[in-house]
Design a protein around this nucleic acid. Sequence first.
DNA 1: TCGATAATTCCATAGTTATGGAACTATCGA
DNA 2: TCGATAGTTCCATAACTATGGAATTATCGA
Lengths: 107, 107
Amino acid sequence: MELSKSIILLSCLAHESRLLIFKQLVQAGSSGSTPKQLVEKLNMPAATLSFHLKELYQAGLTHKEKRGRSINYYADYNCMSSLIHYLQENCCAADHCDSCQESVGLR
Amino acid sequence: MELSKSIILLSCLAHESRLLIFKQLVQAGSSGSTPKQLVEKLNMPAATLSFHLKELYQAGLTHKEKRGRSINYYADYNCMSSLIHYLQENCCAADHCDSCQESVGLR
DNA sequence: TCGATAATTCCATAGTTATGGAACTATCGA
DNA sequence: TCGATAGTTCCATAACTATGGAATTATCGA
């Protein structure tokens, strides 16, 4: 992953509402969530939710599927895992950090 | 890690200059880097660097050590690895993502 | 075709964050 | 006690980001 892409993803996640939305989508799993469900769950005005959902979508952190008059949003795990990999590779050090040792197979 | 702490760390890293500074500190390893070295390496005005270093320090992503008239800054691996853990636990899914399977020991 | 529902876009406003030259503080060696 | 060097803080300005009510678009069932 490029540095500029990682900045886009980090900025996108660095907002309470968006991180909560994303966590919600992760919890919803393969059935996804509609904006309406998210509005109810997170108690947020529809326009505000829509703004944040769009940010997440444009960053590539979600994908969506139209189903009649509603839309299902899903967390994009590949995107998130690429970011996690980027941080492990570039911003941590295998010989100084437990989780890096695990991921590099030293444990 | 709390959600609010993860937001602070993500915001802090979600800036090109700060991510570059942090990567530089990771590369510098146990010898660390001074602001002067970073200014030269990253070609950035001293006031701007100082501003970003302070943000990183206040977020807990670095620690520092005064040495005479200069200061050594170091990447804080514990802080970064806590963030990586948080993302793996809360924002990814072990059964949908390779790197999560690794870290959860399913592989 | 209509009214209701789901979702998005518009847009003015408010709030936050970044920039970097200039001034300042601290510590060195001579 | 200087002058030089390292680093930070100050602060005005610029740029960006978020908010949410109102208007708009799309799709449903009757």
